[in-house]
Structure formats: structure tokens, C-alpha cells
């Protein structure tokens, strides 16, 4: 077994990786918006811890900056922003329905995890780090975020799916390479920040336009039958 040869710090990173995967599944299963936002914030906390662990274990000091950005943006600012928007839109009591039934979506997510495992197998042979298996987990987090965008009807949940996809990308960057170059990382972080603010404006626009945040209404292009 490979695991028994790993130092404790790497075992902790592996554990954090599996917990991040678990929060992705939780995001899929949540039907309340506040629960969704809180789970997203927890995923950010785990990501922050994983980044700190990577920075400390492999002596990559610039990862501390990424970790601080993760903590500030994904744990505090974006969840706070989303929560504020949900309150202002007065939709915090709504229960979300999942397209295709929640059990089917869960099974789909499990299949996605296996799929990403097999996709990543050849990459694993090339990667140098001993925790390279986490690439499969990060790919699974990205795919599950995409699945969430497909299966949710409401715009807020889709935005959270998008953000969790970005979490997966970030995670794969920190575990597979020595982190992205600082410029790219800062760029992505501020993209996400701007996206969060822009999405907020879009929520209000969508609701003003079609009277609901259910994006299925966008498929109807007729005028005047509201």
C-alpha cells in the first residue's frame, strides 16, 4: 500500500482532498439556498487548509498568498455577498428542485468520480508528487460543479456550481503543479470576485425581466404573455 509510506502532512492533504469531494456531494444534495452557501463556504475553508498544508509541506511561500486570497474571497466575501443577495431578493425560504431527481444526480456524480479517476490515470504516471492522486479528486470536483449547473434551475444555485468548479480548478493547480504563476492566480481570483459582483447584478436583471430566478423561463422568447 502506498499510503503507509507517506508522511503525516501528505496524509492530511489526502484527507482534506476527500473532504472537499464530500462537500461537492453535499452541494449537490442541498436544497436550501442558505445551506448551499454555507456548504460552499466550508468547501472554501477546506481549500484554504489544503493550500496552507501544501505551502508548509513543500516550502512554496507564494502559496500562502493564494491561501489568504482563498480565505478572504471564498470563505468570507463571496458567501457574504451571496447571502446578502438572497436576503435582498427574498428567496431564502425557497426549496430548490433538482432536475431528474436527486438520487439519479447522486449516482451520476459517483460515476463522474470514477470517470475522472480513469481519465487521470495516465497523467498520474507523469506527475512527480506523491499526492498526485488528488488530481482525480479535483477533476471530479470540477465535473460535479458542472453537473450542478446542469441540474439546478435557479440562477443562484448555478452560480454556486460555477464557483465550486473554480474551486476544483484551483485545487488541481495547487496539488498537481507548484501552483500557478502569481499573475495568473491573482487574475483568476479577481475574475471570480468580479464574477460574483456581476452575477449579483444579473440576478436582479433576470428577475426584473422574467419575474423569477428560474432560468427555464429564459427558454420562452415570446413577449407579453407574462
Amino acid at each position: 500500500m502506498i499510503l503507509s509510506g507517506l508522511p503525516l502532512a501528505e496524509q492530511v492533504i489526502l484527507t482534506l482532498a476527500s473532504l472537499i469531494l464530500f462537500t461537492s456531494f453535499l452541494l449537490l444534495a442541498q436544497s436550501r439556498l442558505f445551506g448551499l452557501i454555507n456548504t460552499f463556504a466550508w468547501q472554501g475553508v477546506l481549500l484554504f487548509l489544503a493550500t496552507i498544508m501544501m505551502a508548509a509541506t513543500y516550502d512554496r511561500h507564494h502559496l500562502y498568498i493564494s491561501a489568504a486570497l482563498t480565505l478572504g474571497l471564498k470563505v468570507f466575501f463571496i458567501p457574504w455577498q451571496l447571502r446578502r443577495m438572497v436576503v435582498r431578493l427574498d428567496i431564502f425560504r425557497q426549496v430548490e428542485t433538482v432536475v431528474g431527481g436527486s438520487l439519479l444526480v447522486m449516482i451520476g456524480a459517483g460515476v463522474l468520480v470514477l470517470f475522472s479517476y480513469y481519465v487521470v490515470l495516465p497523467i498520474r504516471e507523469l506527475a512527480l508528487l506523491s499526492i498526485r492522486n488528488t488530481i482525480a479528486v479535483s477533476l471530479a470536483v470540477i465535473l460535479i460543479g458542472m453537473l450542478m449547473i446542469i441540474t439546478r434551475r435557479k440562477a443562484v444555485a448555478q452560480v454556486i456550481g460555477f464557483m465550486s468548479m473554480e474551486n476544483g480548478l484551483f485545487f488541481s493547480a495547487i496539488v498537481s503543479t507548484s501552483g500557478m504563476p502569481m499573475v495568473v492566480e491573482l487574475g483568476v481570483a479577481f475574475d471570480v470576485l468580479v464574477a460574483a459582483i456581476l452575477f449579483g447584478i444579473f440576478f436582479f436583471q433576470i428577475r426584473a425581466g422574467i419575474g423569477s430566478l428560474d432560468v427555464d423561463h429564459l427558454n420562452r422568447l415570446r413577449e407579453g404573455d407574462q
Binding site: I2, S18, G110, L114, Y117, N133, V137
Partner: peptide, 11 residues
């Protein structure tokens, strides 16, 4: 997830 993370992470 326990089973999957065993297959993916621990081997």
C-alpha cells in the same frame, strides 16, 4: 465516497 476515496487516494 469512502470507497471511492480508498480507490483513488489510497492506492
Amino acid at each position: 465516497i469512502g470507497l471511492l476515496s480508498h480507490v483513488i487516494l489510497e492506492r
